[in-house]
Design a protein around this nucleic acid. Structure first.
Lengths: 338, 338
DNA sequence: CTGAAAGCGCTAACAA
DNA sequence: TTGTTAGCGCTTTCAG
């Protein structure tokens, strides 16, 4: 049977509360001898505290829950780095992280509610919805009394999100500073996420401030068209006399597409074409050392979200200002002065 | 304050156990009237059961824990599909999933133990270690009394893993059946995972059974060499008179590399070069509709692992036979008869 | 510095 | 069909 405090108390000839205090480091006012004895016995018996009991007594579960939008797509909606940040931060504050997904299909179901929202089993909620959040869901969560922080989503309060607009602007400014004038923005067809328009807004703003005209918007279609047509559709842009000398790419996929395109067009990077991309980390493409990257600060975002949520749990009625996380530039080998 | 069963009992003029029984569907022997009344009041007060209390009483937390090896690398060691499978399965059985990571750096630390192992807060353990598992860790977990199932790892019992050898063999056999004779195996430099050697063993076996000589092993180096040298290093293989007409690729990265290489060498797919890759899902590369893929059955693996663990929790002393999960072939547009 | 008593919210066993 | 009693393991008073 599992070892309990009571057993340790009996074995060491002390009372239950004494053992409890020592094992949970409450009050240093204990004889060194008793202390040692208790710890020794606990070790011998392989004691591990029953967190359910502790939680019930203290009114805190010691758990944060991540409510994650549909993971039924192949592409990871829960980026590894974000998860890493959440895990590191929760571990740091001695909390557990439980993950709950709301399948996209059920997102609009009226009746559906994930287990985590039907019960008291976490102290707070981290919400990472990449898709648009149904209004009903937002209200549900707000009426739910559980402290919550939004990740990757702009709300009026209690949210943490990457500063995409500023990121797009900074990427473009870097290229401008290198002397580039014809700078394009490249993205993938059908990206519904607000980050695409936000980065593009930043790009537009930088171009306008520099009094350069906004250049070719390159939109890559996903692969389900024939090899020839796809390549030819964009290849002219890179070969024309007004071809861009630099491109800001929306994501890793767009970077890959751009490189592929450049290879096919016989345009070499960075000699004739500079590239900055929004990637998870300085991406090593084939034949390329590393991409100049605006790194999405997922790790930091995870940490910030956890810290904000902990604050929220401690002071539920104070709402936190939205926290934009700046992108970090990491140099690679894909940009050069014009 | 949070609504409790007691409050519902008072409001509805019934006793606490009656309310408890109705709310947790125990025993159908209740008057319809009382039933309705209780449910009504519960709804009004927004009742949600306190899982800590329930867990303490029942000796079950209703939680499975995923112990995950270091997430400090950029590459996701927790594939989205696996997580999706685990989440779907735990939701199906009305269980929570908590995720705990052991940072690679601390993997060998003697003193280090993740919170989840220091406490009683889960009913069972799902272990997903991609790196080699230190022996000490295995023993620790085995001595830990908590029912455990290994994912992606071959143990003597209680484990679920993809059948890489058979997968490699099947991929190769498909190409042989298409009439190919010069078939290569392509992988990335420095892959430490056993899946590489297992798939390769399967490839070797298929080739030997067909009495074909094992062909060119193509090893792509990661991008940190100049574009020229990398391409040239492998390009000769595809241009030579004994060039392979088909390639089995270890992973998505190797597929990308192969396509890039083929593009550069002027070899078209699938006309002159067939490709089968081990990818997460039929990968849409640029200019390619979809890769012929041996799909890693991560979703199923997640489900199987959860089912096995639940069995293990119910009957801790019965050990489950290792469960190899077969790969699933999904056709694309990158293979053709010779 | 330590112990006795009480109770967190829930459910299982038994009694009515 | 419902109520009474008891107790899961732990921590928090408060008393000694």
């Amino acid at each position: 049977m599992r070892t309990t405090i009571k057993q340790i108390a009996e074995r060491s000839g002390l009372s239950v509360p004494t053992v409890s205090r020592i094992l949970s480091n409450k009050g240093e006012s204990h004889l060194l001898a008793t202390r040692e004895r208790v710890l020794q016995v606990a070790r011998e018996l392989g004691y591990r505290p029953n967190m359910s009991a502790r939680a019930m007594r203290q009114g805190r579960t010691g758990t944060l829950a991540l409510l994650q939008s549909g993971t039924d797509q192949a592409r990871s909606l829960l980026p590894a780095e974000l998860l890493a940040g959440l895990l590191a931060a929760t571990a740091e504050y001695d909390l557990h992280l439980t993950v709950a997904a709301v399948p996209d299909a059920r997102l609009t179901d009226q009746g559906f509610m994930p287990k985590i929202l039907r019960e008291w089993s976490a102290d707070g909620l981290l919400i990472n919805y990449n898709a648009d959040i149904p209004k009903a869901m937002i209200e549900l969560i707000q009426s739910h009394e559980l402290p919550a922080v939004w990740i990757n989503s702009m709300q009026s309060a209690d949210c943490v999100y990457p500063d995409d607009e500023r990121g797009g602007q900074e990427a473009t400014e870097r290229l401008l500073q290198l002397g580039h004038e014809r700078i394009a923005y490249a993205t993938m067809e059908g990206v519904g996420h607000y980050s695409d328009s936000a980065r593009r807004r930043g790009y537009d703003a930088a171009m306008q401030r520099a009094r350069k005209s906004v250049q070719h918007l390159i939109v890559f279609r996903h692969g389900n068209v024939g090899q020839e047509s796809l390549t030819n559709a964009n290849i002219e842009i890179l070969k024309g006399s007004q071809a861009p000398t630099a491109i800001v790419c929306y994501n890793t996929q767009a970077v890959q597409a751009t490189i592929h395109l450049a290879t096919a067009a016989g345009v070499s990077t960075p000699r004739a074409l500079s590239i900055i991309g929004f990637c998870v980390s300085p991406y090593e493409a084939l034949g390329i050392r590393a991409i100049d990257t605006m790194v999405l600060p997922e790790l930091e975002m995870g940490w910030s979200a956890v810290r904000m949520l902990i604050r929220k749990i401690e002071e539920p009625h104070i709402s936190n200002a939205p926290l934009p996380i700046p992108y970090r530039f990491e140099g690679g080998w894909t940009t050069a002065p014009l």
